[in-house]
Amino acid sequence: MIDADYILSSLTKTFPNDFSESKIESDTKLTSYVEKDAIFNVCKHMLDNLECNHLSCECGVDYPDRNELEVVYHIASYEHPVVITLKVKLPRDDPEIESIVSVYWNANWYERETYELYGIMYKNHPDLKPLLLIDEMLGDWPLRKDYDGYPNKTSKNLV
């Protein structure tokens, strides 16, 4: 039976130096920080050996106070109910991380979205270009906390 304990012990055994601040919230919830260079191999290990065959979500979070960006992966499975939350810290000035599209195919759009909204560059992504925004807005990184285009006060009916 695969549960959060089993997954964490398997991961820490395979990658002894790459996991920190790991936290098991319940049998099915596991949170951990991963070193940024290891994330590709961690995902591959999870897909091959731990039946984690479903990338549920991938997103970015901005922490201007710590001058850091985080990429958060939620990896689930069609076989067991465990949801693993992996977080990677990136420097805010030069955020760059390995793409996991070759492991989880559906990461493609998530990474494109995170790229245009946060400015996180994905290395070895097959087609890194904006997905949701117009081309002129590339470089504004609208979901970062210091974005100045929000709130947009162009509506003339504002009271």
Binding site: D140, G149, Y150, P151, N152, S155, K156, N157, L158
Partner: peptide, 16 residues
């Protein structure tokens, strides 16, 4: 479509 509705402050929508 009249004034932006709940999304009147959004960075992506067009008002007016």
């Amino acid at each position: 479509s009249i004034s932006g509705g709940p999304f009147y402050e959004s960075y992506s929508t067009v008002q007016n």
